[in-house]
Design a protein around this nucleic acid. Structure first.
Lengths: 103, 103
DNA sequence: TGCTTTTATGGTTAAATACTCATAAAGTGT
DNA sequence: ACACTTTATGAGTATTTAACCATAAAAGCA
C-alpha cells in the first residue's frame, strides 16, 4: 500500500500551499533567521508567523534551534528550492501565455 | 510586487495537497482517461472525483476534452512529474531516517 | 527579584475544504 | 420522444484552516 506515500506527499504540498509560507522559505534561502526577524519582514502578526513556521517544521521543510530567548529557523530540505523553481517556471509560463492572448 | 507570484505558486501546491489528487495525476501519467475510468479505479464517488479533477484543471495541471458523452482528462503540465519525484524522494528519505532511529 | 524580550499557544470566529446524496445537463442510441 | 450513460453541480454537514487577541512560558538583564 503506497497510500501512505501519497499522504506524505500531500502533507508536504499542503505545507507550501500558503503564500506566506512560501515567502518564509524564500526569506530563509541564504541564512537562518529568528522569528523576531521574520515576522516584521513579512509584515504579519508574530503569532501568525509562529504557526506558519510550525507548519513548515512539521512537514520537515524547516528545522529550528534555540539560542537564548530566540528561536532560529532554517531550511532543512534544500530540495524545496528545486520544487519552488519548477512551480515558479510553470506559473510564469502560464502568465506569459495569458498575456499573449490578451495582446 | 511578486505577491501574485507567491499566490500562484501556493495555488499550485494547494491543488496537489490531497492524496486523491496526487493519485489522479499519477494515474494519468501515460494516457488520458475519462472520468468513468478514473473514479472506479480510485474507488471514490464520481462526484468527488469530478471536483478533484476540476481543482487540478483550475490549477493548470490537467486539461480536458470532450468526446461524446465522456470527458477525457490529461496532464497539461508535464513538470508536475518532476515536482512529484522531488517530493517523493524527500518523503522516502525522511521515512528511512525515521526507520533508522527505531532500529 | 522584578522587568523586558521573544516565542508559542489557548480561545474565538470566519472562511474554506471535502464528503455525501440527489439531480440537472448533455449526448447516444432505440 | 424516451430511456440510458456520463459528468458537473446544488444543498447540507462536518472538519480544517487561518486570522486575531490575549497570555503563558522561557530566558536574559537591571
Amino acid at each position: 500500500m503506497d497510500g501512505k506515500i501519497y499522504e506524505a506527499q500531500a502533507k508536504y504540498f499542503k505545507a507550501l500551499s500558503h503564500p506566506t509560507r512560501i515567502k518564509i522559505v524564500e526569506y530563509l534561502r541564504k541564512n537562518e533567521m529568528c522569528v523576531c526577524e521574520i515576522f516584521p519582514h513579512l509584515g504579519e502578526e508574530q503569532s501568525n508567523i509562529s504557526r506558519h513556521l510550525a507548519a513548515l517544521k512539521r512537514a520537515g521543510i524547516l528545522s529550528s534551534r534555540k539560542k537564548g530567548v530566540s528561536v532560529y529557523y532554517r531550511v532543512q530540505d534544500e530540495n524545496v528550492f528545486k520544487v519552488l523553481e519548477l512551480v515558479l517556471s510553470f506559473v510564469k509560463k502560464v502568465a506569459k501565455e495569458k498575456a499573449a492572448i490578451l495582446s
